[in-house]
Design a protein around this nucleic acid. Structure first.
Lengths: 142, 142
DNA sequence: TTCTAAATTTAGCTATGACTAATAAACAAG
DNA sequence: CTTGTTTATTAGTCATAGCTAAATTTAGAA
């Protein structure tokens, strides 16, 4: 468990591979480029880096796959994204802007801040009056 | 009002010039470097860029001064920093981490998100029952 | 006043991450 | 099966932003 430290840019590429695979079953260079609004050669270079780090695999001229470690890291990033987007929406930010800003924030916030945001979005149920517990089930993890 | 678009890095340098001038009356290259944890040549280069943009002035081998536009931009950045730090502290984040994370967030968040955070930190008083208005005075601006 | 130490600047190197242009492979159609 | 389009890669450029090493200037101490 050596915990690779990715640049913001590489985190974005890895996350997008994950999202496209969830959405389409395959992550093509062309689609990654379109989604991130960069050109294909930028994607190709990023994929080379992610391969060096052991996070993705790719046979030449075909889609990008995640290694098991890559899938783990990618889903951590995606979870942060989802958490932050929901948080911003809860503050009243519009969905499009929430998505965009979550995308920036997901790479930079410290664990402590993420934890506090998690607590804000999913408040722990107070034991004294735990009646209408709609979201209480998932807060028993940590 | 051409609204210069600064990189995150240049925003950090400009903000630090402002903070050091507030704290010490003078912003020396040495102190900017120490505060931002970079080396002095990095500061020298940034100052050259900020001079090109008309945000700072500096006579050779002495402290960095802000132009009036530089002072304006710097205080906008500093205000965002203060807002975000207060926001994170309100969420329960420790001061040191709040300061660090505010420093990243201040460069990337959209106007809309900053607005909603502002509303969260400084809620508008509801007219119907405006009794104990501790923070109501300052919310009449917008 | 002269000399030394600290501060600043310059020169030049490196890494990251974008781009364009050109090349190569895959695939679909005729 | 060959040809043309789409997709991917490679090669090479540029900008940003950091660094070290070396030169320069300022300023304080002997």
């Amino acid at each position: 468990m050596e915990q690779v430290k990715l640049s913001q840019s590489l985190e974005d590429y890895l996350e997008m591979v994950h999202m496209l695979r969830l959405a389409n079953g395959i992550a093509r260079v062309r689609d990654i480029a379109a989604a991130l609004k960069v050109k294909m050669p930028s994607v190709a270079k990023a994929v080379i880096e992610l391969k060096k780090l052991g996070l993705v695999t790719q046979e030449p001229y075909s889609g990008v796959e995640l290694t098991s470690e890559g899938a783990l890291v990618a889903s951590q990033i995606l979870n942060r994204h989802i958490l932050l987007k929901g948080f911003l929406i809860k503050l009243g930010v519009s969905e499009a802007i929430a998505d965009k800003d979550a995308c920036c924030m997901e790479h930079i916030l410290s664990a402590e801040t993420l934890e506090k945001i998690e607590e804000f979005v999913n408040p722990v149920e107070v034991e004294s009056s735990a009646k209408k517990s709609k979201t209480a089930a998932k807060s028993t993890k940590k």
